[in-house]
Structures are given as C-alpha cells and as structure tokens.
C-alpha cells in the first residue's frame, strides 16, 4: 500500500475502533456479516449511491453505515477530493484491514466457538 493510502486507512480504522461497537460482535461469522454489510453501505453512501434498506436487519446496518459516512466526511475533508473509484478502492482496503484486525488476525479465542 502506498504511504498516503496506508495513512488514510489507518485514520478510518482508528475512528471505527475508538467510536463504534458494531465490529465486535461475538463470533467470526457475526463479525464478517457486520463488517461486510456496514462497510458495503458506507462505501455506497460515500460514493453518493442510493441505499434503501428494506428489512429491519438492513435498517440496522444502514444506521451504523450512515453515521460512519457522516463522521468520515466531517473528519476527513480529503474524502471530498477523491473520485468514486478511489473511494471504492480505499474502502475495500479498509474492509480488508478491519477483517484482519477483528476476524482473521484476531487473537480472541472465542470467535470460533460453535455456540452463541
């Protein structure tokens, strides 16, 4: 990753880690689902694409995604200078990093427990 992208991903992750709770559900599959849905919607919102949550579950992802997108816009003015493709690329890297920190690279031994 080039330095500027790395720094940006770190800034975006840092916000999630310090302010959000949704990335820390209790099982691997749970976290995967949360990260995928919430970051997926956040990416769309940042790219100016419409998000229309239909089910209660989708609405729940959407409120977290909406607040995250708002916080990013407010805190990181450089986001406004990026094109849609650049945002998508950045968010994909963020997703990869977040999955690594909370799932694949996590030291939490309970994540793979079969039961809730």
């Amino acid at each position: 990753m080039e330095d500027v992208t790395k720094t940006r991903v770190e800034q975006l992750i840092d916000y999630i880690m310090k302010n959000c709770l949704w990335q820390f559900h209790s099982r691997n599959w749970d976290r995967k689902r949360q990260n995928e849905n919430i970051l997926g919607m956040t990416t769309k919102l940042l790219c100016g694409e419409p998000v229309t949550p239909e089910t209660p579950e989708d609405k729940c992802y959407w409120v977290d995604a909406f607040c995250l997108a708002e916080a990013y816009r407010e805190r990181h003015p450089w986001l406004a200078t990026l094109g849609v493709d650049q945002i998508r690329e950045l968010m994909a890297k963020l997703h990869e990093q977040l999955d690594f920190q909370t799932i694949t690279g996590s030291l939490n031994e309970e994540l793979s427990d079969q039961h809730y």
């Binding site: 880690m17 310090k18 709770l21 820390f24 209790s26 909370t102 996590s106 030291l107 939490n108 031994e109 309970e110």
Partner: peptide
C-alpha cells in the same frame, strides 16, 4: 471476555 478487552484496548 477477550471480546471486551478487544473493545477496551481498541479504545
């Protein structure tokens, strides 16, 4: 649990 420590240490 370790999940709480994850949240705490992250913050």
């Amino acid at each position: 649990h370790q999940g709480d420590m994850e949240k705490g240490i992250a913050r």
